[in-house]
Amino acid sequence: MKRHEYFVYILTNYNKTVLYVGMTNDLSRRLSEHVEKFNPDSFTVKYRCKYLLFWEQYQYVREAIAREKEIKGWRRSKKDLLVSEFNPDWRFLNEDVLSN
């Protein structure tokens, strides 16, 4: 039986002034879509969010959706702390994901 994977992720713009929280079943593909401006009317295109800062992996879609909603409801300061715990230097992680 195939194991499912779901990801909750956070993107930012180049200056790290905006955060976007999303969920997907294919992080590499979804990140490529953000970079290539797959949906030109989207929040991520408008605010130039295409730099990956954070991700978590889940086996069950319901857990991933619940976590995405939870993080989206947080204040910016709490999201910043989450990113800092995962990625202390706030390094862009696109290449780490896209090269795998």
Results as ranks from 00 to 15, higher is better:
residue 25 N to E: 11
residue 20 Y to H: 12
residue 42 S to N: 10
residue 65 I to P: 03
residue 99 S to W: 06
residue 30 R to E: 13
residue 38 F to P: 01
residue 41 D to A: 13
residue 99 S to N: 13
residue 19 L to C: 03
residue 19 L to P: 00
residue 90 W to T: 00
residue 84 S to R: 15
residue 19 L to A: 02
residue 100 N to T: 11
residue 63 E to R: 12
residue 49 C to G: 02
residue 22 G to H: 03
residue 38 F to D: 14
residue 11 L to D: 06
residue 58 Y to A: 00
residue 43 F to W: 06
residue 81 L to S: 11
residue 41 D to M: 12
residue 25 N to C: 08
residue 14 Y to M: 01
residue 71 I to M: 00
residue 42 S to F: 06
residue 50 K to L: 10
residue 84 S to C: 10
residue 85 E to N: 12
residue 13 N to P: 05
residue 97 V to K: 03
residue 28 S to N: 12
residue 17 T to F: 01
residue 14 Y to A: 05
residue 44 T to K: 10
residue 35 V to F: 10
residue 42 S to L: 06
residue 89 D to A: 12
residue 96 D to F: 03
residue 75 R to D: 10
residue 69 K to D: 05
residue 16 K to A: 05
residue 11 L to S: 07
residue 99 S to A: 13
residue 52 L to F: 06
residue 94 N to A: 07
residue 10 I to G: 09
residue 1 M to Y: 11
residue 65 I to E: 11
residue 90 W to L: 04
residue 79 K to D: 01
residue 48 R to W: 08
residue 84 S to N: 10
residue 96 D to T: 03
residue 86 F to S: 04
residue 36 E to Q: 15
residue 71 I to P: 00
residue 42 S to R: 06
residue 21 V to H: 08
residue 99 S to K: 13
residue 72 K to Q: 12
residue 7 F to A: 08
residue 9 Y to N: 02
residue 93 L to C: 12
residue 16 K to L: 05
residue 49 C to V: 01
residue 63 E to I: 05
residue 76 R to H: 10
residue 58 Y to T: 03
residue 22 G to I: 03
residue 31 L to H: 04
residue 74 W to L: 15
residue 21 V to F: 10
residue 32 S to T: 14
residue 71 I to V: 13
residue 79 K to M: 13
residue 77 S to N: 11
residue 98 L to C: 05
residue 85 E to S: 11
residue 44 T to S: 15
residue 70 E to P: 00
residue 42 S to W: 07
residue 18 V to C: 04
residue 81 L to N: 09
residue 10 I to Q: 07
residue 55 W to E: 04
residue 35 V to L: 15
residue 82 L to S: 04
residue 99 S to L: 12
residue 90 W to R: 05
residue 75 R to A: 14
residue 67 R to H: 04
residue 93 L to G: 07
residue 36 E to A: 12
residue 79 K to S: 05
residue 68 E to I: 00
residue 1 M to H: 11
residue 73 G to C: 05
residue 85 E to D: 08
residue 10 I to V: 15
residue 23 M to N: 02
residue 38 F to R: 14
residue 27 L to K: 02
residue 12 T to E: 08
residue 88 P to K: 03
residue 40 P to N: 00
residue 81 L to I: 11
residue 7 F to K: 09
residue 46 K to T: 14
residue 44 T to H: 14
residue 79 K to R: 14
residue 7 F to L: 09
residue 89 D to R: 13
residue 91 R to K: 15
residue 17 T to I: 00
residue 38 F to N: 15
residue 25 N to M: 06
residue 52 L to T: 04
residue 46 K to V: 06
residue 74 W to G: 00
residue 18 V to F: 11
residue 90 W to M: 02
residue 89 D to W: 07
residue 82 L to Y: 03
residue 54 F to M: 10
residue 80 D to A: 02
residue 69 K to G: 02
residue 68 E to Y: 00
residue 41 D to T: 15
residue 98 L to H: 06
residue 37 K to H: 14
residue 99 S to D: 11
residue 15 N to I: 09
residue 95 E to Q: 09
residue 78 K to G: 04
